[in-house]
Structures are given as C-alpha cells and as structure tokens.
Simulated assay, not measured.
Amino acid sequence: MSSEYRTGREGEFTYRGHTLDELQDMDLDEVAALLPARQRRSIERGLSVEKEKLLEKASDRTEQETANDPIRTHLRDMPVLPEFVGLTFSIYTGQEFERVKVEPEMIGHYLGEFKLTRSSVTHGQAGIGATRSSKFVPLK
C-alpha cells in the first residue's frame, strides 16, 4: 500500500478527526459532542459536584506533579476527557487505589474501565479427603 492512499499523518493521534491539541483547546460542550452517546449524555445532564472537583484538580495539575503524587478518586464513572491525558490517577477498586496513567487512546472511555474490581480466581489443589478421588492421590 503506497503512502498516497493513507489518511492522516502516521504516528499522530487523532480522535474523530481532531488532534490532541485541538481537543484540549475545545471547551467541554464541544468535546462532549464528539464522545460516544453514554458519555455525552452524562456530561450534557451536568457533572456532579464530585466530578466538577476532579475536573478542576486535573486542570490545575501538570504531568510532573501527578507522576509523583497521583490524583486519588473513587469516581470510576468519570469519562476520560482530553484534559486528563498525561496525568496519573489512583482509581479505587473497592479494596485499594491503583495507578493509571491516562493515554490519548483512553479518551471517550470511563476511568473504571482501566482497573478491574474483580480479580480472577485461582484455585489450589483439593485437600486429602475433599473428594472421593482424592483418596487415591499419593502423598508426597
């Protein structure tokens, strides 16, 4: 495939035809118009007080500050906005806060999508007498 048929510049991030710099210059309503329906609706209905505070915190911080001291939040249902790119968040999983560095590809998703609340179950071996077949397991 020759380069004359490719659209956009190679290696440059775009979201729905807009570069990251253009997205960061837009106001919240313009960005909301580009987001998927569920995220757009949550912004159009108005952000809660907690989400407004998180947005303020993120706009005041720089990448260097959040790398050392991430923004702690319980708001797993906050949509990732262009202002969050480059910042580090500590997202609560129900037991602990886990760090997430926001990349440009995360725009339009929710913060909670990047840290799971349930861990996978790894079962050990059955103990002696746990099942009928375990009676015949040789001891070590």
Rank of each mutant, 00 (worst) to 15 (best):
E44M: 07
M78T: 09
L87P: 02
S42Q: 10
E50Q: 14
R76S: 10
D77N: 14
E52G: 00
M78S: 04
S42R: 06
S42T: 15
S48T: 15
N68Q: 15
L87M: 10
Q64D: 14
V49R: 10
L54G: 00
L81N: 03
T73Y: 09
K51C: 08
G94T: 07
G86W: 00
G94F: 07
N68R: 14
E63M: 08
P70S: 14
K57A: 14
R45P: 04
E50K: 12
P79Q: 04
R76D: 11
L47H: 05
I71F: 09
K57Y: 11
P79A: 10
R61K: 14
D69Q: 13
V85R: 00
H74I: 07
V85Q: 02
L55I: 02
K53E: 15
E52C: 07
P79H: 01
G94E: 08
E44K: 09
T62P: 05
V85P: 00
T62W: 03
D69F: 06
I91K: 01
D60K: 10
R61A: 15
D77W: 03
K51T: 03
F84C: 08
E83L: 14
E83M: 08
I91N: 08
L75Q: 14
L54D: 08
L54P: 05
S48P: 06
E56D: 11
S42F: 03
T73M: 10
I91E: 07
T93Q: 05
K53D: 15
Q64M: 05
T66I: 08
K53V: 12
L55C: 03
R61N: 11
E44I: 00
E83I: 11
V49P: 02
H74Y: 13
R76G: 10
L47M: 12
S59N: 11
V85K: 01
S59P: 02
E50H: 08
H74V: 13
R45F: 02
E63P: 00
L87I: 01
E83P: 04
K51M: 14
N68V: 15
Q64G: 11
T73W: 00
I91W: 05
T88L: 05
Q64P: 05
T66F: 03
E63I: 09
R61H: 09
I43S: 07
L81S: 05
F89N: 06
Y92H: 15
V80F: 01
G46L: 07
M78F: 15
A67T: 01
S90C: 13
L81K: 02
V49C: 04
V80W: 00
R41T: 11
S59Y: 04
K53N: 14
T66S: 15
R41K: 12
G94L: 09
M78L: 13
A67K: 01
R61Q: 15
Y92D: 15
L87C: 11
L47C: 01
L75H: 09
T93L: 06
S59G: 07
